[in-house]
């Protein structure tokens, strides 16, 4: 410990340690936060080795700017966009305020919470987009605005109030991988829910 270089070696050894922690992370957001630790320690090592300009660049550009940009990129790419009808969408926004008991009664809220539970394992986020009617919903799927759509099967929406509990929902996915993920873990989902996988061979002009 009397060696003056001893603490220098100790500080330099922190760099591969934090790099190892970064590599073993699975969740992309956790990895980005650990990247902040790596950046701070890299700055320390550069500074005590005498490279003040390199340390400053690592702290400002390498750590701050890169992490913030990557968080925004991950946030906008790891998302599953699900198109729903306007009436269902309102139910969902109201349910987030009220208690979870309502969730058990309503099939749509149950389906949505199930989807969230399944895709959370893949670090995905569910984003609901509301559309006026089924025609708009299918048009959005054709034009690739959404990854999937979820709607009640009986087209007559006026009857919904009478048949509230017997309502059937259909979910159509445009992305094959999303369909695989949801259908593999289908065991917990309510039985009156069906999935249809449509492959689009539409030529892009």
């Amino acid at each position: 410990m009397n060696n003056p270089d001893f603490s220098l070696y100790l500080i330099t050894a922190l760099l591969p340690l934090s790099a190892f922690l970064l590599v073993i992370q699975v969740n992309p957001f956790h990895a980005l936060v650990i990247r902040g630790i790596l950046g701070a320690i890299a700055t320390l090592v550069y500074a005590i080795l005498g490279a003040g300009d390199v340390a400053l660049t690592e702290a400002l550009m390498g750590t701050l700017l890169a992490i913030t940009l990557y968080v925004i990129a991950v946030r906008s790419s790891l998302v599953m966009k699900l198109g729903v009808l306007e009436t269902d969408f309102q139910k969902e926004t109201q349910a987030s305020i009220s208690t979870e008991e309502k969730e058990k009664k309503d099939l749509f809220l149950l389906i949505i919470s199930n989807f969230k539970k399944i895709i959370r394992k893949y670090y995905l986020r569910l984003e609901l987009l509301s559309y006026k009617d089924i025609n708009n919903l299918e048009k959005a799927l054709q034009e690739k605005e959404v990854h999937g759509i979820c709607f009640p099967i009986n087209n007559n929406i006026k009857n919904n109030e009478n048949l509230d509990n017997k309502n059937l929902y259909e979910t159509i996915f445009r992305i094959e991988r999303l369909y695989e993920i949801i259908s593999q873990e289908n065991s917990n989902v309510e039985t009156n829910l069906s999935y249809v996988n449509i492959k689009q061979n539409k030529e892009e002009n």
Binding site: A47, L56, R75
Partner: peptide, 27 residues
């Protein structure tokens, strides 16, 4: 020279993490 680097990291670094926390909070 090293001291100035330390001071800048101390002031700007934590302000940057505020920005990062805002983005993570939305997610």
């Amino acid at each position: 020279m090293i001291a100035i680097v330390g001071v800048i990291i101390l002031t700007v670094g934590n302000a940057g993490f505020m920005l990062l926390a805002q983005v993570i909070k939305r997610v």
